[in-house]
């Protein structure tokens, strides 16, 4: 099914766009923490969103922090930056330079995490918008937290019927901790078709 949705070429192009977006995000983060942020190569996967695929995409985590950002325009859907288990907590503590004794995030820390996710997601979408020369708008980010089940229900009910799920997994490492994050984008069929069209249009320029 995966192949049917996005060709290898589409995949490659999207991956590179996310790579560039993450590179910018990492640059912004490294300026904030005055430390180098090490990035992995993003892994992209597109599947039809179903309860199973959503659950799978969220992995085996017990507890998640996810930052939701709705986007609209030429491309529309919901983007989520999901942090495994306590990766989000670790990330915030690292950024704020606090020791992580408690596993719960306070309000201030939740805002911090929201901002970090916002930086990453914005960088990715700006890159897509810039390179593909399309118009995308995003809303203010929202922090969600809970078990994968709770989050999944939220995501699924927000996405409408038969949406596609595009997941980009990546890890970024701060000096001492490896933080795993995943960008998941839920898109309606027509939105995905629009994306494919944009990708093909872009590819044509270079072939």
């Amino acid at each position: 099914m995966n192949q049917a949705l996005l060709s290898d070429e589409h995949n490659d192009t999207l991956c590179e766009l996310f790579n560039i977006g993450m590179g910018r995000a990492a640059n912004s983060l490294s300026e904030m923490v005055h430390e180098e942020v090490i990035l992995s190569v993003p892994q992209l996967n597109t599947v039809k969103a179903s309860p199973t695929s959503l659950a799978l995409s969220l992995g085996q985590s017990r507890y998640l922090h996810a930052i939701e950002q709705c986007f609209s325009g030429d491309l529309s859907g919901q983007a989520y930056l999901v942090f495994d288990d306590f990766s989000g907590v670790d990330l915030v503590r690292q950024l704020l330079g606090e020791s992580a004794m408690c596993q719960d995030l306070g309000e201030l820390e939740q805002e911090t995490l929201t901002e970090v996710a916002n930086i990453i997601l914005n960088a990715c979408f700006c890159c897509i918008a810039e390179v593909l020369e399309c118009d995308i708008e995003s809303d203010v980010p929202l922090l969600l937290k809970g078990t994968p089940n709770e989050l999944f229900h939220l995501q699924f009910s927000n996405a409408g019927l038969a949406p596609y799920l595009l997941t980009v997994s990546m890890t970024f490492q701060l000096p001492s901790k490896s933080i795993k994050g995943q960008v998941s984008i839920l898109m309606a069929t027509e939105s995905l078709q629009k994306l494919i069209k944009e990708l093909e249009r872009f590819s044509l320029i270079y072939t």
């Binding site: 590179e16 766009l17 790579n19 560039i20 977006g21 993450m22 590179g23 910018r24 990492a26 640059n27 490294s30 300026e31 180098e36 942020v37 990035l39 890159c127 810039e130 390179v131």
Partner: peptide, 23 residues
């Protein structure tokens, strides 16, 4: 490269090679 962090630019420069940020 898409890795446009300052340390990266410095590292590239230290090899006597020019740096070009993606895209």
């Amino acid at each position: 490269t898409a890795n446009i962090q300052r340390v990266m630019r410095q590292r590239v420069a230290s090899h006597g090679v020019s740096f070009y940020p993606k895209p």
